[in-house]
Nucleic acid binder design. Structure first.
Length: 270
DNA sequence: AGATATTCCTGGAGGC
DNA sequence: TGCCTCCAGGAATATC
């Protein structure tokens, strides 16, 4: 499922096709994804020129010269397809550029969202205002401050977008493994020394995934119009029962926290 | 504050 | 082969 690296990769792919182009036409093939689309979406986007693209946490944004930003979230199964051979059942939203490219937002499970917000007030847009800092903008001391006094498991707190924004289940599991921290440990009790391992682990795991073009399970394709799925093998994620890749001789375990799977090595992660 | 449950949704996997 | 059930999860929301 798309997490920060996949969104970053998607934004970079879209940038190549969209930046500086005029939007010739849009087509909303459903009136709603996760939320209802604005009724004036078409008139605000059609004829506008794309000035910039960017990412905030797991959201991508497409800015236009009319002062609007189209914000997308890929949810569980969203991806953009570039110049698809044909429009498919789950292509919910289309953008056509003045130079003839077609972008299709495909999202079978429709956990994703599309919003059009005024760029000038974007930081106050409720979904953005609630977000914590970007992972690359946070250091151990700041993370410690944000975890202070919290008794919930570190795994769950790292998934909380208000504390740190952009991490999902896969990269949280991977970062905790690299930092040798038990996912069940109370967030507020993780020492500064350990956070000094965790923060660089988060940075590294995200940077590697971005460099690799975004990891993939089943639902993500890089936006190149091809089915060029990149698949990465993780240290712990989805490796229940398999040997730990460390030298400890342990076995990767799966537990459930907050209703979702956590994978970790009980021997290395304390 | 925290733990847990529910909702949205569909495709893929596994059982029979 | 086909039919059934279960499961995956990001974010918002509700309940205890």
């Amino acid at each position: 499922m798309p997490e920060l690296p996949e969104v970053e990769t998607t934004v970079r792919g879209l940038e190549r096709v969209l930046k500086g182009r005029r939007i010739a036409r849009i087509e909303a093939r459903r009136a709603d994804l996760r939320r209802a689309l604005p009724h004036d979406l078409g008139q605000r986007l059609t004829g506008a020129t794309v000035t910039a693209l960017g990412r905030r946490a797991k959201y991508g944004r497409i800015d236009t010269d009319r002062g609007d930003s189209l914000i997308f979230h890929l949810g569980m199964s969203g991806r953009w397809r570039i110049d698809p051979a044909e429009i498919e059942k789950h292509d919910h939203f289309l953008i056509e550029t003045d130079d003839g490219h077609v972008l299709a937002l495909n999202d079978p499970r429709r956990f994703g969202s599309l919003d059009l917000v005024v760029t000038a007030g974007i930081d106050n847009w409720p979904a953005f205002a609630a977000l914590g800092p970007e992972p690359f903008d946070i250091g151990p001391a700041e993370l410690q401050r944000r975890l202070k006094g919290r008794k919930a498991a570190i795994k769950l707190l790292l998934l909380d977008q208000r504390i740190i924004a952009g991490l999902g289940n896969i990269y949280v599991c991977e970062a905790l493994f690299r930092a040798r921290i038990n996912p069940r440990r109370a967030g507020g009790s993780v020492s500064l020394r350990r956070l000094g391992r965790l923060v660089p682990s988060i940075h590294a795991v995200l940077a590697e995934a971005i460099a690799a073009g975004g990891s993939s399970l089943r639902d993500f394709a890089s936006p190149d119009g091809e089915l060029g799925y990149f698949s990465k093998s993780f240290d712990v994620y989805d490796r229940e029962g398999q040997p730990c890749r460390g030298k400890c001789g342990g076995t990767v375990r799966r537990i459930v926290q907050g209703g979702r799977s956590t994978f970790y090595c009980p021997k290395c992660q304390r």
